[in-house]
């Protein structure tokens, strides 16, 4: 177990390495000349040349790549082209907003999704099961930005209970501003969690070990909590891990709709101004966040199901 965990943790290093390489090559190599993309069509050749030198584009691709890796290891993201400020400073000030939004949504999703999913599986084919499934379907089907727009329309513009933009000052104001964005992301995630909890519970129900447990006369509640639930949770954990990226995409859109500060707004703004260093830094951070969550997911796999532990 320890050996597996150490191996798994070490394997994140090549993952991070490949990911940031993909980001580098897509952003730097695919456009024929980032400098002219940044400056637009009317730029003078001198200005383009100056920017090329400033960005280090006049050296060879591999020299640029090495330089890029070097600065990534030192966590030096350079300066924003648009504002001239240090990208790291901007990210440090905005990261907490995005983190609280994502964590609050996962929390909402698990608190709502898992118990209702279990309930729905136990009461299979009842009216409440049908309602739960309908709700889960709506959650899954609703694009995060559309639910955000509806919540904004109803609870902020028509019935002004919640603020429509910003992030709030103190702790209470912060939570107050977090409510609608976190709900619009969390409810959607809850639908997914609910659906997977239900379907994996039902998958396990017909297995032999459950029949054996029932035959031994173990009470229903014990069979559900000790036998079925433990095995059913693997897909649930997987799906939360897999959905981390969807969640971050959702966070980007939600921040745009609610005009919330955060990494998402920073990235979208950077795309509009063609601010490559900022965009690059945001993408790298998002990816490291996802890799980290997936590491935790994989490690919890082997705790939940010893059969998966490799040799």
């Amino acid at each position: 177990m320890l050996k597996y965990s150490i191996r798994r943790i070490l394997l994140t290093i090549p993952t991070i390495f490949i990911t940031i390489s993909v980001i580098f090559f897509v952003l730097r190599i695919l456009p024929s000349d980032p400098a002219s993309v940044i400056l637009g069509d009317n730029a003078t050749p001198e200005a383009i040349q100056a920017l090329r030198e400033k960005l280090g584009l006049n050296t060879s691709v591999w020299a640029q790549y090495l330089h890029f890796l070097q600065s990534m290891i030192q966590a030096d993201f350079g300066n924003s082209i648009a504002t001239g400020r240090s990208v790291s400073d901007q990210i440090i000030s905005l990261l907490p907003y995005t983190l609280e939004l994502t964590l609050a949504s996962i929390l909402i999703a698990v608190i709502i999704g898992v118990p209702i999913g279990i309930y729905s599986a136990i009461k299979r084919n009842s009216i409440s099961d049908a309602l739960v499934r309908l709700f889960a379907l709506m959650g899954i089907s609703m694009p995060a930005f559309f639910l955000g727009i509806l919540l904004l329309l109803v609870f902020s513009l028509k019935i002004p209970i919640f603020p429509s933009m910003g992030a709030g000052e103190n702790f209470v104001g912060n939570l107050y501003h977090l409510a609608l964005p976190a709900l619009s992301l969390g409810l959607i995630e809850a639908g997914i969690v609910m659906r997977i909890t239900r379907s994996s519970m039902l998958d396990e129900v017909n297995r032999d070990y459950v029949r054996t447990a029932k035959a031994k006369g173990i009470p229903k509640k014990m069979v559900i909590s000790k036998h079925i639930l433990r095995n059913s949770l693997i897909p649930v954990v997987t799906v939360i891990g897999l959905n981390m990226t969807t969640l971050i995409s959702g966070a980007v859109l939600t921040e745009a709709i609610f005009s919330r500060p955060g990494l998402g707004s920073l990235a979208v703004g950077a795309i509009e101004t063609r601010d490559y260093p900022t965009l690059q830094a945001c993408l790298v951070l998002f990816c490291i966040l996802v890799i980290f969550v997936n590491l935790i997911v994989d490690l919890s796999y082997s705790i939940l199901n010893p059969r998966i532990r490799p040799q």
Partner: peptide, 17 residues
């Protein structure tokens, strides 16, 4: 590694580039 890049951002990146 590819999966670590959120699909929306992967799309944004490719569409920008």
């Amino acid at each position: 590694s590819i999966q670590a890049i959120p699909m929306l951002l992967l799309g944004l990146m490719l569409l920008v580039a």
